[in-house]
Nucleic acid binder design. Structure first.
Lengths: 355, 355
DNA sequence: TTGTATGCGTTATCAC
DNA sequence: GTGATAACGCATACAA
């Protein structure tokens, strides 16, 4: 019985035309209060709910925003989603989740997203390769926001974090604790963030006039097992590092695991700092000192930005105009500062609550 | 440019009718291979993507499933979602997330979900009050699956866990460790699961011929602060319990916090067991012994069940028939066993990895 | 203020 | 095998 009653039924029952029903549905001003009341009553009586699909098809607003993610099973997504959900739950929009992994053709997936007006806009979280196509769409005036720690799209509104300075802070902290042989476990070269974090590492060492030792720089894949492997390599050195800065928390986890398996004490024998501050990092043993990416806030600000873009669309003319002068004025960019969260693994003791 | 080119354009370019284009789009058999190839080529050339909204509006399949949740910000949701995502990513369906909190009228939200065919089915996760309306819809033949630990809907397909026996196992474990004064921190009375877990507690004590001590039974609200408060009450007793079984991990966290704040050692001074096994429970100090609800698996099986319901709809006649004889044959129910995860807080020592 | 008519882009039902 | 054409349910420009 759900969608059985249509606007036509209401119109008939109320003795008016479909157009008038549509008007009260959309709260148009130009309708007699008396008529409005009568129609509204019928609507309530019948429990009539407008067919969303037909509404959109006819050119109405959909109140859907699409959230495009690489993979829902990636842990960091959840923190972002928390922030997004917080805002969405207090708006009258709903979320459509798309993942781009299982479709061979990314553009097709994204096109389907925008099929007519089903979604009013897209929040793309760590979109990877798709970012180029998204930029094109953003350029055409589609409301799109990219949350990414891998790179900074030039033509699409962007929310991200400052990897380089966060990285620098982490290594500076180790330097301040007296370490001189500091290793770095890099992320994959294909990600811009790997490079940025590596740069931050170099920056800090340069400040301290310490030259890079290639043997102290290993490449992982951001996942825990690669941290384990790199730990093996680093701790097997004739002159092993006294501190390690891992490019991701997961790789740091792998490092911890190796240390535990081989009786290496953290931070006593070797200090350790990670990057991301995912949820579990407060609960590892020892608790992980790490660079916090404010994923929750990024989610919040990302979706807020998107909603504002939807509500206040930039006219094609204005966009055209802006492109010729100052592109940054029309392409919002929000870069969050990262924050070093000092726990136990770096050797700077502090009280840490159990939870 | 996104959805600009329509089926009409393709038809014109290929020199055929819209109907034929639609046929190749939907892989209908009755179309000349040569024609098919020609049309397909135009489609590819133009990068034509069918308008999803129009497709649905015209009666086509949508490939969307709705996931209805109380609040996206509730931590347990994520584990369920992991399972759901795992399956969804390997299907050709997409997920629409609805939360029922922010709309006053639940039925309206749900009706919008089913607006025509936008979503082919609904997975309702901990739907709370809405379950009644969902049952009505399921009764009408809509593909609906309810994942719930609060109660067992009678007329809708259901996936859940066996609270009572899980609870019994936990308390039995404490009894086996020699405890006789075992307290219980209940969940709110309005949830069926609170009652079921309490029943399991009673079962185990009855088995051991231990009579209930009302002072050892406290009511919380499933959240951490209430666990803190109850800890205060329980540990302030003249003859405090030697073990505590909390109805949720979060309440157990509150208990741990209180213990830490007041120098009470767990499990040395008092043993503790929780319920849920949310992610952080492996990382508390001490690591929490708890009853694991297989949320991930529940998500998996729930969405699998839903998809199968969508792909193999039960005809109204068959449903009518079944209702008269054996309702359970037509209403699938999957009840997962819970599992006691023994860590440190119960006092039965075991090696626990760092991660 | 209200009604009429048309369009949205696709699928489905007929004919041919 | 293929082509008209009528739905689908609503919004909207235009007419009254």
């Amino acid at each position: 019985m759900t969608g059985k009653v249509t606007i036509t039924d209401i119109a008939r029952l109320a003795g008016v035309s479909k157009a008038t029903v549509s008007r009260v549905l959309n709260r148009k001003p130009d309708v007699d209060p008396e008529t409005r009341a009568r129609v509204q009553q019928i609507i309530d009586e019948q429990g009539f709910v407008p067919n969303l699909v037909a509404t959109v098809q006819a050119g109405g607003r959909s109140r859907f925003v699409g959230m495009l993610v690489q993979s829902l099973t990636w842990p960091l997504i959840h923190e972002v989603m928390q922030g997004v959900a917080e805002i969405i739950e207090n708006s009258d929009y709903e979320l459509i989740l798309y993942n781009i992994t299982h479709t061979s053709d990314r553009a097709t997936t994204i096109d389907r997203v925008f099929a007519k007006n089903l979604t009013s806009g897209i929040l793309a979280v760590f979109p990877g390769q798709s970012v180029q196509y998204l930029e094109t769409l953003a350029d055409q005036g589609h409301p799109i926001v990219v949350i990414d720690d891998q790179g900074k799209p030039t033509r699409a509104p962007w929310v991200g974090a400052d990897n380089r300075s966060g990285s620098r802070d982490a290594v500076r902290h180790l330097l301040n604790l007296g370490h001189r042989r500091i290793a770095h476990i890099q992320g994959p070269a294909k990600y811009a963030c790997s490079w940025e974090r590596y740069q931050g590492y170099c920056d800090a060492l340069a400040e301290a006039n310490i030259s890079l030792d290639p043997r102290l720089i290993r490449v992982g894949d951001f996942e825990a097992p690669s941290g384990y492997t790199c730990a093996q390599a680093l701790l097997g050195l004739s002159d092993p590092p006294t501190a390690v800065y891992a490019g991701s928390d997961l790789m740091a986890y792998g490092f911890i695991q190796y240390a535990e398996d081989h009786g290496v004490r953290i931070p006593h024998d070797v200090a350790l700092i990670g990057f991301d501050d995912i949820l579990a990092s407060a609960h590892t043993r020892p608790a992980l000192t790490t660079v916090r990416q404010p994923f929750y806030e990024m989610g919040r600000r990302g979706i807020e930005l998107l909603l504002s873009l939807i509500e206040n669309p930039v006219s094609p003319a204005a966009r055209q105009l802006a492109r010729r002068s100052d592109p940054t004025r029309i392409v919002p960019r929000i870069e969050f500062e990262t924050r070093l969260v000092i726990r136990e693994s770096c050797g700077a003791e502090r009280h840490t609550p159990a939870i």
